[in-house]
Simulated assay, not measured.
Amino acid sequence: MMMTTRTKLRALAVSSAALFTAGPAFAEMSAEELAKLAQNPVGNLISLPFQNNTNLNFGPREGTQNVLNIQPVIPISVNSEWNIITRTIVPVISNPSLYPGDDRTNGIGDTVFTAFLSPAVPGHWIWGAGPVLQLPTNSNSELGNKNWGLGPSVVVLHLEKGDPWVYGVLANNIWSLSSNQQGGSYNNGLIQPFVNYNFEGGF
């Protein structure tokens, strides 16, 4: 059995968002509004969230794995109606020993890049859809796969001014484009619901 604990460093995400947005519209936002915008995977805001996942009882020797995801989000304006939101996930992985005599393995895993097409002026319900690409950037064979991957991705969430709740779901599926490199073929699906409650002051 594998147990997972997740800690999302929202303070870092919010401080990064504030650092990268100097426009008057963002300057007029409260800390809570900036925090909610930073929690939006397709928000029109340059942000740098960090997500740390600690997986207990990982592998045949039931060690502890740690994965720090660095997730820069960069919006690109297409026109007055549409934005393309790029979301990159670079995992920094620390794997426990998997067999006797094996040492802990530390390094970079495979990078996942998504480009969401999303309305520039959404309502309370926000959506985005686009391709997701897996790049074989792993620094060690234990940390990833050498075959490129491609698939669809979609996100839907609810974000309303005055409502402290932000909730939604992100889903994607990535199929390997080849199978002749290290790691072989893969077919990886992800469904990630998320719920955030924002206290006054942006906490």
Rank of each mutant, 00 (worst) to 15 (best):
Q181H: 10
P193Q: 04
G130V: 04
V78Q: 08
G130S: 03
L68K: 11
V42C: 04
I174H: 01
T5I: 13
W165R: 00
F116N: 03
G23V: 03
P49C: 09
F116W: 04
N180C: 01
L170W: 07
A35P: 02
W148M: 07
D102W: 06
I46N: 07
Q39Y: 05
K146T: 11
P152I: 03
N140P: 15
S16T: 12
N172C: 02
A22L: 11
I85D: 01
Q192G: 07
V42K: 01
V121R: 14
V195E: 02
A115Y: 09
L117T: 08
D102Y: 07
M29L: 11
Q192S: 14
E142L: 13
T21Y: 00
P136D: 12
N52D: 12
L19P: 12
V67P: 08
E142R: 15
I70M: 09
A129G: 08
K161I: 02
G201D: 02
R61G: 12
G168P: 13
G144Q: 10
Q71F: 09
N40W: 00
S178H: 01
V67C: 06
Q192P: 05
N198K: 07
F203K: 14
N44A: 06
V92I: 11
W148Y: 04
P24T: 06
F116L: 06
V78S: 01
M3W: 13
A11I: 11
L48H: 12
A35R: 04
V121T: 13
L150Y: 08
G101A: 10
S47A: 14
L157I: 10
V14F: 02
N40M: 02
P49Y: 04
V14G: 02
K146W: 03
S153L: 00
P60Y: 00
V166H: 01
N69D: 12
I84K: 10
Q181S: 08
S80Q: 15
I74Y: 02
V112R: 12
S139L: 07
N138T: 12
L117K: 08
L9N: 09
T7I: 15
A25Y: 02
W127S: 06
G184D: 00
G123Y: 04
P164I: 03
L48M: 14
P72Q: 00
L135D: 09
T105F: 05
G63N: 04
E62A: 14
L150E: 07
S139C: 13
G151Q: 03
A17C: 13
I191S: 10
I174M: 05
G43C: 03
P100S: 11
R104V: 15
L133W: 14
D103K: 09
I46W: 04
G59F: 06
H124M: 07
P41I: 03
N140G: 07
L190A: 15
N180S: 11
V156L: 15
I126A: 03
P49N: 09
S118Y: 00
L34H: 04
F26K: 12
P24Q: 05
L150P: 12
N138M: 14
L177R: 01
P41K: 00
R87N: 14
M3I: 13
N55S: 15
Q134E: 05
E160P: 08
N196Y: 14
P60G: 06
K146Q: 13
L56D: 06
N66Y: 03
L34F: 01
V121Y: 09
E142K: 15
S94C: 03
A115K: 10
N106P: 09
N83G: 08
G130M: 06
E62C: 09
